[in-house]
Design a protein around this nucleic acid. Sequence first.
DNA 1: CAGTATCCTATCCGATACTG
DNA 2: CAGTATCGGATAGGATACTG
Lengths: 230, 230
Amino acid sequence: MTRGSYGQFCPVAMASEILCTRWTLVLIREMIAGSTRFGDLRRGVPRMSPTLLSQRLKDLEAAGIVSRLPSEREQGVHEYRLTEAGRDLKPVIEAFGLWGQKWVETEATLENLDVSLLMWDMRRNINPAPLPPHRTVVQFRYPDLPINRQNWWLIVDPEARVDLCATDPGFDVDLWITTDLRTMTAIWLGLIPVGDAGSRLRIDGDPALARTITKWMGLSTFAGQRKLIG
Amino acid sequence: MTRGSYGQFCPVAMASEILCTRWTLVLIREMIAGSTRFGDLRRGVPRMSPTLLSQRLKDLEAAGIVSRLPSEREQGVHEYRLTEAGRDLKPVIEAFGLWGQKWVETEATLENLDVSLLMWDMRRNINPAPLPPHRTVVQFRYPDLPINRQNWWLIVDPEARVDLCATDPGFDVDLWITTDLRTMTAIWLGLIPVGDAGSRLRIDGDPALARTITKWMGLSTFAGQRKLIG
DNA sequence: CAGTATCCTATCCGATACTG
DNA sequence: CAGTATCGGATAGGATACTG
């Protein structure tokens, strides 16, 4: 019997059998964050191979955590949605996140920089409410990155839909944010307040947008749980 | 790169890297429940090989979750204690337990019967307060089990220390509880109230003890979170 | 885009025996 | 009792290519 059950009736052990396999909690986190399609899930969990992603989704479906439905809009495509049992995992994910934010070495965390993941996360947490009622375009510039990953555009359209582009969409830019990936990630995680980044973060463009940045640029759910770094 | 990091700065991913390996959460649950010595940990996680247990304890020490100290009482023996970071995992364990209790199939859970684990758990949760001020001995009898696992004695001494024996300690017995392992486990998990077990559970002996059984016989932390079974 | 199929190896882990 | 040493096998999962 290799790799069998823990053989314990304890609910912690039973839950661990289902949840504590590689990638599983990260995938569930991504679903709780709102991704429902295979491609979106891949984007949120890019280092997971498609084979394994497919496998895990099947496992989770068998466990009653995910349901797989044909998409209402597109042919031959499915959507993966959390069942009630899946949604009930939110406290589990939150407990992990809080603990991770509090106790995992900052340095270890900041070894995992990933601009695409970061921008994808930021896109999700933009708060359009404080923005003007017309289209707003914010360009992020990371001069320290390879050319094809340096520029990102966040676009909030008048209907408050948020879009992310890695290629110039051609719109006029309202605000430029120029920084390095490590600084931006640390800000996102709540390790550095935007205002404390000093010369590592430059903001140019519309002064009104710049002034309200902390209002519309949402940070990680777990920001603000831990002592700040210098 | 097989089995490397998730490559994500997300605190959930960082925490998962540390916690979501086989046996780890079950081991931590055992430590939170109070076990500190290698032997006690083995008893609480009996299907884990000593090699792997030793390995995991080292991993957890490296992660700052466990500290290994020479025992104050005994030579050449160590105690494994949770650090503050380790104690902070209690909410994580609780979230797992609550979810497991609510969503894992009862039948799956009850396939993992283990009398030694159950009695060890019960021992931990006996509440001596309502018991008389002299030694109390409760004998559990499981006629459905192999002969050498049928009988267990819980002994609460006048100083309120609780002891568990699998061989007759020779004391007069105050109360006999005769049942089958599945029923007793279901009761422990809160799936059946003691009073509803009917003929599957027989109590003999001191009527006062029998009457107050729900007062002194503690159940699983997670009992009472889920709909009962028939 | 949404997945599947195949292959292959690193690594994890279970079993067992052994030592201070 | 408290751990360590060794070994072999299973398997998970990474890489890559492919299909509707």
